[in-house]
Design a protein around this nucleic acid. Structure first.
Lengths: 210, 210
DNA sequence: CGAGTACAGTTGAACGCTCGTTAAGCTACT
DNA sequence: AGTAGCTTAACGAGCGTTCAACTGTACTCG
């Protein structure tokens, strides 16, 4: 056979497709092994069981997501608006380009047993905090003017996550355009007002002004 | 035994809680029967099987949702902004007050077999159209000014749906306040500009003006 | 009016099947 | 000789579903 990927990766890919398409409990390990083109027992040669396969997918997905966010944030500097744009852009890109992984992260994590679920929820919290801290920073400096930062954050995150469900690479909107657009939507939700020398409103800025 | 609800309703309630909490495939009909306080065979006296229980929950949930929307729209008149507010308000209320049913509608519909799934997807499409037609009407009359009506619609729907996941009735924000707030967020996303006598843009109004 | 009957409501036991997992062993390369 | 990679076969458990049988109640009919 032509040098196809090692069973290891073939199994991850197959499990990914099956879990995303039908859900963890609706997928049998026989389905996964068949799609990966290996026997049932070969699966157990690489992974100790079905749960381990899910856990591996969830952690790999989270690793890739945080890597993308960290990259974007490293280029973003200190401006809260830029940092928020970096996180929104990275999230939209990830949801679109890795929609299968995203669907698993979003829908299948609840199949984790409690001992693994705690660690996963912590990573989810960290992801939420990427949004939260950029938003809070912008509120503090007065560039984000929404009276409802928590609801705006939830809305922004929900909008980004939904991209995984409807985006198709052959659709009418190129991904880079879409990412820009979602940054704009986020700014709109947050009541983004560019800082101008004459119109600062945060108390610290006002104090510095006079 | 004191007049407890008929087995019929007890089974629906039990199935609802189990499906929402653990997912359709992770729930056994023995779990459902036990929670409902009836025997396994009694379940089959009321429903022909597990799938029928899910289908009944999905249809009941959709019926209740559309009833709420229809009520709100009947009181809303013809103004697109009012109609959009009615749909957003009804959706937020439903997601908050019937979060268990909402979680099933949102997450478990994919467990339907293909013959039932088609009819369900059609009802989902009708629900989406409640938003779409209000938004399109507002765009047509010029009160909604967003350049991205499709993305705004998806964002609004995703935000409303997410309410089912986080809202708790004992939380800090009363439901009516929350519903108002989400209407405001939707208006913000749509670039809502109230019509003023000097800035009408619909042709009929413009004709009357001159 | 009372016997007969039908049927809704419920039960415990079982069926056949698929599930996740394990065991034992074979091949080929190092 | 050892081990990575993979095979066939099987295990026990749990699944959705079915079955035969037993209640009580309500309705029919001589």
């Amino acid at each position: 056979m032509a040098g196809r990927p090692a069973g290891h990766q073939a199994l991850l890919d197959a499990a990914s497709a099956e879990f995303a398409g039908r859900g963890y409990y609706a997928t049998s390990i026989r389905d996964i092994a068949a799609r990966a083109g290996v026997s049932l027992s070969a699966l157990y040669h690489y992974y100790p069981g079905k749960q381990a396969l899910l856990a591996a997918l969830l952690h790999e997905g989270m690793d890739a997501y945080f890597a993308l966010c960290d990259d974007a944030l490293a280029q973003a500097g200190r401006d809260p608006a830029g940092r928020l744009a970096a996180v929104v852009g990275a999230t939209v890109r990830y949801r679109a380009e890795r929609s299968v992984a995203s669907l698993i992260l979003i829908n299948e994590a609840r199949a984790l047993p409690e001992n693994l679920a705690a660690a996963y929820r912590e990573r989810e919290r960290q992801a939420t905090d990427l949004f939260r801290s950029a938003i809070n920073a912008g509120i503090a400096t007065g560039i984000f003017t929404t009276p409802y930062p928590d609801d705006a954050r939830r809305t922004i995150i929900a909008a980004c996550n939904a991209v995984a469900q409807w985006y198709r690479p052959d659709g009418p909107v190129p991904l880079e355009v879409l990412a820009e657009r979602y940054v704009t939507l986020a700014y709109t939700l947050l009541g983004y007002r560019r800082r101008t020398p004459l119109a600062r409103s945060s108390s610290a800025a006002a104090a510095a002004q006079h």
